[in-house]
Design a protein around this nucleic acid. Structure first.
Lengths: 207, 207
DNA sequence: GCCTCCATAGGGTATTCACCCTAATTGAGG
DNA sequence: CCTCAATTAGGGTGAATACCCTATGGAGGC
């Protein structure tokens, strides 16, 4: 029998996670908490087999909870459960040595599979993660100039606009544009925007 | 002396709202709550001059809290405080007769101005609201076919792709494209994406 | 010194897009 | 029956973009 601690600041999600896991014979939920501070208290108290952790929570960030959990309860397997698909913060979490990662749009089957994998000392990472991190890396490989041009393309500027803004020739902008689209594997402005949002290059709210 | 009730599920935001308002001589915070249910209980108990309300909360949606507040405490002025800029839900809130609306990226000066305006029986709506609602209306005026074409453009398809998909000629797609861009006042795919996200036509996470 | 990467700029061509126009068909509503 | 909006399709033009290529100057690494 494995023990599970749920940490998510959304009551609705905590409840649906409970509903998913309670029918299972091999897992038992010891507690659910709504913020990072309570999560750490509960980890120290229960030392659960698995910590199901939302990254975005009040009082303590995901990475802080992960580090302290590893210190106080090293046997606890940590599964990150996130709605954010921005690459930058994800890379940090993965480097910190978590055991699994799920995106919030995955179904209960994937969640249960993740739980069983980590309790058997395997890791479980969402299939989408590799593509997110690949795109994250690709954006990181853009040169400064290419990033500047990308920003302007996303802002709806034409090559001529960008050339005037940066005081370079239209053909130079065209070259930067071609190279950055190759690097990102994009074939349209829509592709660029999708990648830019997924990787956290730009934030949807600032559009 | 006016009384203020704060309702927001994020502890951090509640605290920062408190910090903003406590130095003011003409306002006093009677309570802050973290969900819609507690908000209604507090409204009935305190009958505050102003309700500062986040739309996205557990247990009761913003519109429910607004309607019940108007029933149980009609003298209470309601200021909506939202991070969501999607037009559809906003229109419903405005129609329900709230007194003010702020987006979460506005600063404390605007918040204080909104409080003073509504307590003097004026209304206060964020400047961005009009553009959001205008774009919302524009998207609503698109025909079904135009919406289909818009979706495909946003997905990165070319006119040729869309023509094949919908079994119509490229010129027809071109016509739909031209008309929808006119209706939305867009001049680039980036403009389309920005409007589509702002109006809730597509959700950033599904990109 | 040599080599690589970056930014710069241009040639050339094919495709795509933006924006103007007309026009036939269809279906819903007055 | 007539009208209007929507959908369909096309003509035509100019701009913008995608993708191929070469080439030069400078900065940094070895």
């Amino acid at each position: 029998m494995h023990t599970v601690l749920i940490a998510d600041d959304h009551t609705l999600i905590r409840e649906s996670l409970r509903n998913m896991l309670e029918p299972l014979d091999d897992f038992s939920i010891v507690a659910d908490v709504a913020n990072g501070f309570d999560a750490l208290v509960a980890v120290k108290k229960w030392k659960p087999s698995v910590l199901l952790l939302d990254v975005a929570m009040p009082d303590a960030t995901g990475i802080e909870v992960v580090v302290d959990t590893q210190r106080w309860s090293p046997q606890t397997k940590i599964i990150i459960y996130t709605g954010v698909t921005s690459g930058a913060p994800l890379q940090q979490l993965i480097d910190s040595g978590i055991h699994g990662l799920l995106f919030k749009d995955s179904d209960s089957a994937h969640l249960i599979k993740a739980l069983r994998e980590v309790t058997h000392n395997h890791s479980y990472f969402d299939d989408k993660l590799s593509s997110v991190l690949a795109e994250q890396e690709a954006v990181g490989n853009l040169t400064e100039r290419e990033k500047q041009v990308l920003s302007q393309i996303l802002a709806g500027k034409t090559n001529r606009d960008i050339a005037l803004l940066l005081n370079i020739s239209i053909k130079t902008v065209d070259n930067h544009r071609t190279r950055l689209m190759n690097k990102l594997g994009a074939h349209s402005v829509s592709d660029l925007l999708r990648i830019a949002i997924k990787t956290g290059f730009i934030h949807p709210d600032t559009l």
